[in-house]
């Protein structure tokens, strides 16, 4: 990613979305998942995107995570136009700039915790020895140094999610994008995970949570509510 100084103010947002829409074809019918969404997310923000199912929040999350591209509108990621990117360029953005944390953890079942965390570095082309070192550091930062050689099925739900967070962190991405990160966890473990996000945010990371739970969203410093493909409200919370 290269900065283009003349258009970028010092407080340039990481994500700049302007009037984006997303239309899916379902048989003969067009489904407007996103009708008109505009928003900016800056560095070291802690944002929650909220909305009921069918609100378009998942589509918005896929868009933000560069898993999908908008039908129309503008999406600049650190000033780069995402809409015109090829599949491979999107893959590179996801690899270097975005750390995903999923509700169902999405770890590779046959790989150890360490191997799972190494994976983004594999696709980034990092040498094996350096990769191991960085992955170990990431696992250490989520408190799982002693579980590195365990496979996902030998770990508890909370531990799995922490492996997933370590995997998201390992490339030092611009944003951490978490989709219902506590959805499959009991409330105590969920709280631990939310504490971890809080800590990551305080360390300078940009965190975007996608959730339908008020309790989870309340951890964020800014809540964007989505309904029927539109942004319903965008508030900075007092905390």
């Amino acid at each position: 990613m290269t900065d283009t100084p003349e258009t970028q103010a010092p407080s340039q947002p990481i994500i700049h979305i302007e009037h984006i829409t997303k239309v899916y074809e379902m048989g003969n019918e067009d489904v407007h998942a996103l009708r008109d969404v505009s928003l900016d997310i800056g560095n070291n923000e802690y944002v929650a995107i909220m909305g009921p199912s069918g609100s378009g929040k998942s589509t918005l999350m896929n868009m933000l995570g560069c898993l999908d591209t908008p039908t129309s509108g503008t999406y600049l990621f650190k000033g780069e136009d995402v809409k015109s990117m090829s599949d491979d360029e999107l893959a590179m953005i996801r690899n270097k700039e975005i750390g995903f944390v999923f509700q169902t953890f999405n770890l590779l079942p046959r790989a150890t915790a360490l191997q799972n965390v190494e994976l983004p570095l594999v696709y980034a082309g990092v040498k094996s020895s350096l990769r191991k070192q960085q992955a170990e550091a990431a696992l250490e930062s989520v408190g799982l140094r002693d579980r590195m050689d365990h496979r996902p099925n030998e770990l508890s739900g909370g531990q799995r999610q922490r492996v997933a967070i370590a995997r998201a962190l390992v490339t030092k991405p611009s944003i951490i994008l978490a989709d219902e990160p506590t959805g499959n966890l009991d409330s105590k473990t969920g709280q631990d995970i939310m504490d971890l996000f809080e800590r990551l945010w305080k360390l300078g990371n940009t965190v975007i949570l996608v959730t339908h739970e008020e309790d989870v969203a309340r951890h964020a410093r800014r809540i964007i509510r989505v309904r029927d493909g539109l942004v319903e409200s965008d508030d900075v919370t007092s905390k």
Partner: peptide, 16 residues
């Protein structure tokens, strides 16, 4: 399929 999705999400390109 799921594994392919995970790999792509974290940066695997088509060629990989």
């Amino acid at each position: 399929t799921k594994e392919i999705g995970i790999r792509k999400a974290i940066g695997a390109r088509r060629s990989s």
